[in-house]
Nucleic acid binder design. Structure first.
Lengths: 259, 259
DNA sequence: GCCTAGGTCCCGTTT
DNA sequence: AAACGGGGCCTAGGC
């Protein structure tokens, strides 16, 4: 770690911890603090968490995260860029993180510290994620036949009044098709959504489009609703979409190698 | 901290770290590890994160969390209860967390360790949160007049085909009222939702109910849609609901003190 | 700033 | 297990 410092500090050195904390925040360092604390939040809602032992992270972008000893989610947090204050109050270390918009404040009152680290972490790596809805969309753009023989793309992410149509296309008969893509099991709301979009396309183009939901599965209720309302279903999993894209990429490389 | 152990371990002691890790997991202790690592995830989607310095938490319930030096969200994680394996691979420490349903696997390959802690944290505190939608509902139940003079509750969380009606009531004229509560700004989908529920109530009771959306605000489009379709709006913020509840609680305490 | 949608969302609750 | 909705959701993208 570059310029790394670390130290274990007793709470009686509260002024030392305060100084370390302020210096670390000013220097854009990360802080890991383990200890006994209470946490209050006041903002979009408000919450109270009584005394217990937790892990506090203050990151290099001044985001603040409090983790309890169980659960994959942080119990309290403050997003990056917030203002951080540290002070002594009744012989306790108090950290206040606040931001103006939306107005919210996180107050952490620390009564015992068992670990305190300052660190400057270097992490320039890119994060790549695949098998998302976007990959399914991309696969359909590259192979419109996934929808059906003769399907052609008209527009992607077309804005309608209150949302975006994943794919707007035409079938072999020239009829408009509103396509809604779901990475996971499609539910009744997804059926509602494609119908909402379809109604707006109908109003605009003067002809009723077909509606197709693309997903690996549908809930039983969604399937029933879809049948009743004439919404069609095409099975496609994000995983298969990803495989299709990989194959095409390999093919592209091969073809460009030939030139 | 009770039974606390901590140690800073060099990666050359990889077998020692392995043993510490396994013992800690077996003992239900929490691990904090800071170091250089790559992270692969394969499951509901898949992701790749190249080498960089991060903070790894393995919690007492075997949830796994990887934090980068910025951002309030973890970059990779695995939920509580997963199975954790630790092994040596090409002179690196590899931690694999996996679960069967849904099938997913997180592989963390650690090439350098700068901090390693085992800790048993005690945290029995209850977490309380207020000013949520539930508080708004509760306030309406205790003071139906918040909806309007003469409003009475008929049923709460009534199940309809694809959802639950927050509050079903009757106005002073005995007409049914479908109430939909939103903690934040209500949007067009919320208008659709209350109309969908209302249609089902109409079918069941044979009379068209009124529809009321309770929220602190509405988006402009939602307001327009509501006006067009006869959906009414009552302004109520979660904050005010919470204050009303607090006042009533104080009053209850006062009255019970009188008995 | 508002609005909209995706996410390995997580989490609780109920069937 | 599946389904459903809330959440301080967070985050990204458009306008």
């Amino acid at each position: 770690m570059h310029g790394e410092k670390h130290s274990v500090v007793e709470l009686r050195d509260i002024q030392t911890v305060l100084q370390e904390l302020r210096n670390a925040v000013a220097a854009g360092e990360m802080i890991i603090l383990v200890g006994e604390m209470t946490v209050e939040y006041d903002g979009r809602s408000f919450s109270w968490l009584g005394t217990g032992e937790r892990v506090l992270l203050i990151k290099q972008d001044r985001s603040v995260i409090v983790h309890r000893p169980t659960g994959s989610e942080a119990v309290n947090w403050q997003p990056p860029g917030s203002h951080i204050d540290a002070l002594e109050e009744n012989s306790k270390l108090v950290i206040v993180s606040s931001r103006a918009s939306p107005p919210e404040k996180l107050k952490i009152t620390i009564s015992r510290i068992s670990h305190f680290h300052r660190l400057k972490l270097r992490d320039e790596a890119e994060f790549h994620m695949h098998a998302r809805e976007e990959d399914m969309q991309q696969a359909i753009l590259e192979e419109p036949g996934l929808i059906e023989e003769g399907f052609v793309i008209v527009e992607v992410e077309r804005k309608v009044l209150d949302g975006f149509i994943d794919v707007l296309g035409r079938d072999r008969d020239g009829r408009l098709v509103v396509v809604e893509i779901k990475r996971e099991k499609a539910d009744t709301q997804d059926i509602d959504q494609v119908l909402r979009y379809s109604a707006q396309i109908e109003e605009e183009f003067g002809a009723r489009p077909r509606q197709i939901v693309v997903a690996p599965l549908m809930t039983a209720k969604a399937a029933q609703k879809a049948r009743m309302l004439g919404v069609e279903f095409r099975r496609l999993s994000p995983r298969r979409a990803q495989e299709i894209l990989k194959k095409r990429k390999g093919l592209d490389r091969f073809l460009s190698g030939l030139i």
